[in-house]
Design a protein around this nucleic acid. Sequence first.
DNA 1: CTAGTTTCGCTACTTCAAGTATCGATACCG
DNA 2: CGGTATCGATACTTGAAGTAGCGAAACTAG
Lengths: 192, 192
Amino acid sequence: MTRATASARPPGRPRSGVNAVIFAATLSTVHELGYARATVDRIAAAAGVAKTTIYRRWPSKGALITDCLLDAFGPLPLEGADRAELMSSAVHWIAAKISEPGVGDAFAGVFSDAVSDPALRTILSARLQDPYRLALQDALGEPEHRVLFFIDVVVGTLLHRMGMTGEPMADADVTALVEMVLPHFADGAGPA
Amino acid sequence: MTRATASARPPGRPRSGVNAVIFAATLSTVHELGYARATVDRIAAAAGVAKTTIYRRWPSKGALITDCLLDAFGPLPLEGADRAELMSSAVHWIAAKISEPGVGDAFAGVFSDAVSDPALRTILSARLQDPYRLALQDALGEPEHRVLFFIDVVVGTLLHRMGMTGEPMADADVTALVEMVLPHFADGAGPA
DNA sequence: CTAGTTTCGCTACTTCAAGTATCGATACCG
DNA sequence: CGGTATCGATACTTGAAGTAGCGAAACTAG
């Protein structure tokens, strides 16, 4: 998982397999201290590695958080007999992920940083959003801009609740979100 | 506008009426440089005042931005013959406001800061969200949690688009947002 | 006109975090 | 063994939030 699957192993001392440890330390530190106070120094200390080791692997704190989220989310489970079940399970899945300790804070935090950092925005969009967007386009047969709108609504709503209250959205409200979104994205409901 | 309407003027040198100038400088600086690089030093320089003057009036950068947004938004225009028109105009209004130069960046930026700053979250919730929430509760006759959900969806969606793309949401998508939200909040559509 | 109070601009400072630089030591390849 | 890239450790640079203390200015009360 840590080791690249490249053809020949590159020369030099190989990287130790501590990415998973660093990811875990990142989430727990963010969970305990919040995003802003989860400094790279503290994350490194919690993971038992040097700060320089982290900066050798990720170009910035935002990139670390992005990869950490990618690792925490994993692939989108595309389950459901029909279109409605598929979308419903996707919404509940991302809501549950964002509810996990540290994940929501880290997500909202890195998203915030990206607002005034175009480079991080590119990383976030390409590494985190695009894979799920493509999977959804494929599963739903919707054009790109409709799936982007879907993501804006679902993720935006969940993050806004998290940001304004500090708590993840309750199940009842996630269900309301599903019920609001489903008709709009029902087969043949959209324009074109 | 700047001067307090308090009973007797307090002793000492009165504050100069530069709040409006500071607000304008804040928005233009955020618009030019982005939220993170719009430092209080730079905002003060753009407004032609000393940084200490700003910190005499607002306890933190976040509080300044919050008041600046409050000033930029103004009161929620509650127009519309019926419930649907009222909600539609409210969504288009906030979308237009967020599209104004600097406003969306400032909003997304201060929101981001609030994620890991409970004190700022309190300021943001009480000074910015609550007035509009109360006005909506009154106008729509909906309970608090439904209006909060409405705000999460609308503002969250608009900010997510702004944060991920750097551009405000296009009119066509705002219209789609309205069409998605309206049926869910139609009279008698909700639980209880 | 003077005394009291508060704001003003200015400069200097403290604190903290992101990110960089450098070093000797270590692990792996050929 | 020689080459190379990583490791931990320490020190450093840079930039921004927020604070402290100054003399000058503006206003009010007497």
